[in-house]
């Protein structure tokens, strides 16, 4: 009976680990879409209202307050006090590395590179960079969504197979 319980626990553990991986994928897709929306909003604020960078970031932080992108905008807003010691590009990049790691390497590189354009003198270049980055977020989210069914099958299959083998070996 104890062996059966142990086997069930191992299988459950493997199932849970697969489920967590799938969930992380879904979460990444959702955050990529949130990021896409935030970057689109960012671009709109720049072109329509031409507000100062701090105002735009504060407004984005407010809108993202209960979302997973909220801590990123909060951190950039807070770190704006370090301007002078750090350039905006440095502040942006460290915010991306610290708060958006869950998005994956490609997305982190894309959003991080925005720091080199934002805050500069040419508005058109910044808008273009934001638009490109928003498209890239959408592409990565789509990629994540399309990969999900296959990943789900593979994760569950591999986890359950590994669990089953472990059960056989241990029993």
């Amino acid at each position: 009976m104890r062996k059966m319980l142990g086997a069930a626990a191992i299988l459950l553990g493997c199932f849970l680990s697969a489920w967590c991986r799938i969930r992380a994928g879904r979460r990444r897709e959702a955050v990529l879409l949130l990021m896409r929306d935030s970057l689109t909003e960012f671009r709109r604020e720049l072109t329509d209202r031409r507000g100062g960078m701090r105002d735009i970031l504060t407004s984005l932080a407010g809108r993202n307050a209960r979302r997973e992108t909220g801590p990123f905008f909060d951190r950039i807003c807070a770190d704006m006090d370090e301007l002078g010691e750090k350039s905006f590009s440095e502040i942006w990049r460290s915010g991306v590395a610290g708060e958006l790691g869950m998005l994956g390497e490609e997305a982190v590189d894309t959003v991080g590179a925005l720091g080199d354009s934002l805050g500069g003198s040419e508005l058109a270049l910044q808008c273009e960079a934001l638009e490109n980055a928003a498209h890239e977020m959408e592409r990565l989210a789509r990629k994540e969504r399309e990969a999900l069914p296959g990943e789900r099958r593979m994760s569950f299959g591999l986890s359950l197979a590994a669990g089953a083998m472990l059960v056989i070996v241990l029993i």
Binding site: R50, R54, L83, F88, L118, G119, S121, E122
Partner: peptide, 23 residues
């Protein structure tokens, strides 16, 4: 050069795009 960028970012609040006319 990075120091000059930091100074300008501080002076403009990283909003140099709002100073195109002055620039």
């Amino acid at each position: 050069e990075s120091d000059l960028k930091r100074i300008l970012d501080k002076a403009t609040g990283a909003s140099l795009y709002n100073a195109a006319e002055a620039m």
